[in-house]
Amino acid sequence: MRRHLNVLVESGLAVLMIAALFAVFVYVPSEREMGVVQRIFYFHVSSAIAAFVGFAMVFVASIQYLRTRRENWDCLALAAAELGVVFSLIVLISGPIWAKPIWGVFWRWEPRLTSMLIAFTIYVAYLIVRSYTTGSPDRTRRFAAVIGVVAFVNVPLVYYSVNLWSADQQLHPREVELAPAMVQTRYLAFAAIIALFFYLLKRRYELEKLARNVERLDADLPLH
Protein backbone atom coordinates (compact mmCIF):
# COMPACT_ATOMS: atom_id res chain seq x y z
CA MET A 1 0.00 0.00 0.00
CA ARG A 2 2.73 2.42 1.04
CA ARG A 3 4.73 1.63 -2.04
CA HIS A 4 1.78 2.41 -4.25
CA LEU A 5 1.32 5.73 -2.53
CA ASN A 6 4.98 6.55 -3.05
CA VAL A 7 4.81 5.75 -6.72
CA LEU A 8 1.74 7.88 -7.03
CA VAL A 9 3.40 10.83 -5.35
CA GLU A 10 6.57 10.49 -7.36
CA SER A 11 4.71 10.25 -10.60
CA GLY A 12 2.64 13.26 -9.70
CA LEU A 13 5.75 15.21 -8.91
CA ALA A 14 7.37 14.15 -12.15
CA VAL A 15 4.35 15.25 -14.11
CA LEU A 16 4.28 18.57 -12.32
CA MET A 17 7.94 19.20 -13.02
CA ILE A 18 7.65 18.28 -16.66
CA ALA A 19 4.65 20.53 -16.97
CA ALA A 20 6.56 23.35 -15.35
CA LEU A 21 9.55 22.84 -17.62
CA PHE A 22 7.27 22.80 -20.61
CA ALA A 23 5.54 25.95 -19.45
CA VAL A 24 8.79 27.76 -18.81
CA PHE A 25 10.61 26.76 -21.95
CA VAL A 26 7.89 26.31 -24.52
CA TYR A 27 4.57 27.70 -23.47
CA VAL A 28 5.35 31.11 -22.09
CA PRO A 29 6.43 33.81 -24.53
CA SER A 30 9.79 35.46 -24.14
CA GLU A 31 9.85 38.63 -22.17
CA ARG A 32 10.03 41.68 -24.32
CA GLU A 33 13.03 43.37 -22.86
CA MET A 34 15.18 40.60 -21.51
CA GLY A 35 14.61 37.84 -23.94
CA VAL A 36 15.10 34.18 -23.38
CA VAL A 37 17.26 34.37 -20.30
CA GLN A 38 14.40 35.85 -18.34
CA ARG A 39 12.87 32.40 -18.15
CA ILE A 40 15.25 31.58 -15.39
CA PHE A 41 13.29 33.96 -13.23
CA TYR A 42 10.50 31.42 -12.83
CA PHE A 43 12.79 28.99 -11.04
CA HIS A 44 15.04 31.59 -9.47
CA VAL A 45 12.33 33.24 -7.42
CA SER A 46 10.65 29.98 -6.46
CA SER A 47 13.95 28.60 -5.28
CA ALA A 48 14.49 31.64 -3.11
CA ILE A 49 11.12 31.07 -1.51
CA ALA A 50 11.88 27.37 -1.07
CA ALA A 51 15.19 28.21 0.61
CA PHE A 52 13.41 30.56 2.93
CA VAL A 53 10.82 27.94 3.78
CA GLY A 54 13.69 25.60 4.56
CA PHE A 55 15.28 28.08 6.92
CA ALA A 56 11.96 28.73 8.64
CA MET A 57 11.56 25.00 9.16
CA VAL A 58 15.03 24.80 10.67
CA PHE A 59 13.94 27.47 13.09
CA VAL A 60 10.77 25.72 14.16
CA ALA A 61 12.39 22.28 14.32
CA SER A 62 15.27 23.68 16.36
CA ILE A 63 12.96 25.20 18.93
CA GLN A 64 11.00 22.01 19.16
CA TYR A 65 14.13 19.97 19.59
CA LEU A 66 15.32 22.12 22.46
CA ARG A 67 11.94 21.86 24.07
CA THR A 68 11.26 18.18 23.65
CA ARG A 69 14.66 16.65 22.87
CA ARG A 70 12.87 14.32 20.48
CA GLU A 71 15.31 13.31 17.82
CA ASN A 72 12.82 13.52 14.99
CA TRP A 73 12.90 17.28 15.25
CA ASP A 74 16.62 17.23 14.85
CA CYS A 75 16.38 15.05 11.75
CA LEU A 76 13.90 17.51 10.32
CA ALA A 77 16.14 20.47 11.10
CA LEU A 78 19.06 18.81 9.38
CA ALA A 79 17.06 17.90 6.30
CA ALA A 80 15.55 21.38 6.07
CA ALA A 81 18.94 23.04 6.49
CA GLU A 82 20.52 20.96 3.76
CA LEU A 83 17.69 21.73 1.38
CA GLY A 84 17.78 25.39 2.32
CA VAL A 85 21.44 25.46 1.41
CA VAL A 86 20.85 23.63 -1.85
CA PHE A 87 18.07 25.93 -2.96
CA SER A 88 20.05 29.01 -1.94
CA LEU A 89 22.83 27.70 -4.11
CA ILE A 90 20.38 27.43 -6.97
CA VAL A 91 19.43 31.05 -6.41
CA LEU A 92 23.05 32.16 -6.21
CA ILE A 93 23.93 30.31 -9.42
CA SER A 94 20.83 31.15 -11.43
CA GLY A 95 21.13 34.78 -10.45
CA PRO A 96 24.44 35.36 -12.21
CA ILE A 97 23.32 33.34 -15.20
CA TRP A 98 20.52 35.80 -15.55
CA ALA A 99 22.60 38.79 -14.58
CA LYS A 100 25.44 38.47 -17.02
CA PRO A 101 23.40 39.14 -20.16
CA ILE A 102 21.09 41.61 -18.46
CA TRP A 103 23.28 43.64 -16.11
CA GLY A 104 26.52 42.94 -17.90
CA VAL A 105 28.20 41.59 -14.81
CA PHE A 106 28.02 38.28 -13.00
CA TRP A 107 27.49 39.79 -9.63
CA ARG A 108 26.29 42.97 -8.09
CA TRP A 109 26.34 43.60 -4.39
CA GLU A 110 22.71 44.43 -4.32
CA PRO A 111 20.34 43.74 -1.41
CA ARG A 112 18.64 40.50 -2.33
CA LEU A 113 21.56 38.61 -3.71
CA THR A 114 23.78 39.77 -0.89
CA SER A 115 21.25 38.76 1.74
CA MET A 116 20.90 35.38 0.10
CA LEU A 117 24.65 34.96 0.07
CA ILE A 118 24.94 35.78 3.75
CA ALA A 119 22.08 33.44 4.64
CA PHE A 120 23.82 30.79 2.56
CA THR A 121 27.06 31.16 4.50
CA ILE A 122 25.27 31.08 7.82
CA TYR A 123 23.53 27.82 7.07
CA VAL A 124 26.63 26.29 5.56
CA ALA A 125 28.31 27.16 8.85
CA TYR A 126 25.38 25.41 10.56
CA LEU A 127 26.12 22.25 8.62
CA ILE A 128 29.84 22.51 9.28
CA VAL A 129 29.31 22.91 13.00
CA ARG A 130 27.27 19.74 12.98
CA SER A 131 30.22 17.82 11.65
CA TYR A 132 32.87 19.19 13.91
CA THR A 133 31.39 19.22 17.36
CA THR A 134 33.03 16.91 19.85
CA GLY A 135 31.36 14.98 22.58
CA SER A 136 28.04 13.26 22.33
CA PRO A 137 25.60 13.67 19.42
CA ASP A 138 23.26 15.25 21.89
CA ARG A 139 25.62 18.18 22.22
CA THR A 140 25.94 18.50 18.45
CA ARG A 141 22.20 18.63 18.14
CA ARG A 142 21.77 21.17 20.87
CA PHE A 143 24.41 23.42 19.37
CA ALA A 144 22.88 23.07 15.94
CA ALA A 145 19.47 23.90 17.36
CA VAL A 146 20.77 27.05 19.01
CA ILE A 147 22.39 28.15 15.77
CA GLY A 148 19.23 27.28 13.90
CA VAL A 149 17.23 29.61 16.10
CA VAL A 150 19.72 32.46 16.08
CA ALA A 151 20.34 32.25 12.34
CA PHE A 152 16.71 32.66 11.43
CA VAL A 153 16.16 35.58 13.80
CA ASN A 154 19.16 37.15 12.17
CA VAL A 155 17.74 36.84 8.66
CA PRO A 156 15.38 39.85 8.80
CA LEU A 157 18.17 41.88 10.41
CA VAL A 158 20.49 40.92 7.58
CA TYR A 159 17.91 41.79 4.99
CA TYR A 160 17.14 45.14 6.55
CA SER A 161 20.70 46.20 7.02
CA VAL A 162 21.89 45.07 3.61
CA ASN A 163 19.06 47.12 2.14
CA LEU A 164 20.21 50.04 4.20
CA TRP A 165 23.66 49.66 2.84
CA SER A 166 22.91 49.35 -0.82
CA ALA A 167 19.37 50.46 -1.45
CA ASP A 168 20.64 52.48 -4.34
CA GLN A 169 21.86 49.33 -5.96
CA GLN A 170 18.52 47.65 -6.15
CA LEU A 171 18.64 46.13 -9.57
CA HIS A 172 16.13 43.38 -9.29
CA PRO A 173 13.30 44.03 -11.71
CA ARG A 174 10.28 45.48 -10.11
CA GLU A 175 6.90 43.88 -10.13
CA VAL A 176 5.55 44.65 -13.54
CA GLU A 177 2.42 43.74 -15.35
CA LEU A 178 2.75 40.18 -16.41
CA ALA A 179 0.94 38.61 -19.30
CA PRO A 180 -1.53 35.91 -18.26
CA ALA A 181 0.69 33.19 -19.64
CA MET A 182 3.50 34.46 -17.48
CA VAL A 183 1.37 34.49 -14.37
CA GLN A 184 0.27 30.94 -14.99
CA THR A 185 3.81 29.82 -15.60
CA ARG A 186 4.96 31.52 -12.49
CA TYR A 187 2.47 29.71 -10.32
CA LEU A 188 3.17 26.43 -12.01
CA ALA A 189 6.91 26.75 -11.55
CA PHE A 190 6.38 27.76 -7.96
CA ALA A 191 4.17 24.76 -7.32
CA ALA A 192 6.71 22.46 -8.92
CA ILE A 193 9.64 23.79 -6.93
CA ILE A 194 7.80 23.75 -3.64
CA ALA A 195 6.53 20.26 -4.29
CA LEU A 196 10.06 19.20 -5.09
CA PHE A 197 11.27 20.81 -1.89
CA PHE A 198 8.82 18.98 0.30
CA TYR A 199 9.36 15.73 -1.48
CA LEU A 200 13.12 15.94 -1.03
CA LEU A 201 12.59 17.03 2.56
CA LYS A 202 10.54 13.99 3.31
CA ARG A 203 13.01 11.64 1.66
CA ARG A 204 16.00 13.22 3.41
CA TYR A 205 14.22 13.15 6.75
CA GLU A 206 13.41 9.50 6.41
CA LEU A 207 16.90 8.74 5.26
CA GLU A 208 18.35 10.42 8.32
CA LYS A 209 16.08 8.54 10.66
CA LEU A 210 17.01 5.31 8.95
CA ALA A 211 20.71 6.05 9.23
CA ARG A 212 20.42 6.74 12.93
CA ASN A 213 18.46 3.58 13.50
CA VAL A 214 21.20 1.63 11.76
CA GLU A 215 23.70 3.18 14.14
CA ARG A 216 21.55 2.12 17.03
CA LEU A 217 21.30 -1.41 15.73
CA ASP A 218 25.06 -1.52 15.57
CA ALA A 219 25.28 -0.44 19.18
CA ASP A 220 22.56 -2.74 20.44
CA LEU A 221 20.38 0.12 21.50
CA PRO A 222 16.60 0.48 21.32
CA LEU A 223 15.34 1.85 18.04
CA HIS A 224 13.36 5.02 17.67
Partner: peptide, 13 residues
Protein backbone atom coordinates in the same frame (compact mmCIF):
# COMPACT_ATOMS: atom_id res chain seq x y z
CA UNK B 1 33.03 30.95 10.77
CA UNK B 2 29.89 31.69 12.72
CA UNK B 3 30.40 35.19 14.00
CA UNK B 4 31.39 36.89 10.75
CA UNK B 5 28.22 36.13 8.78
CA UNK B 6 26.03 36.70 11.81
CA UNK B 7 27.67 40.03 12.52
CA UNK B 8 27.08 41.44 9.06
CA UNK B 9 24.09 43.62 10.04
CA UNK B 10 26.03 45.06 12.97
CA UNK B 11 29.18 45.44 10.92
CA UNK B 12 27.39 47.37 8.22
CA UNK B 13 26.10 49.83 10.78
Amino acid sequence: LLVLPMMVPALIS
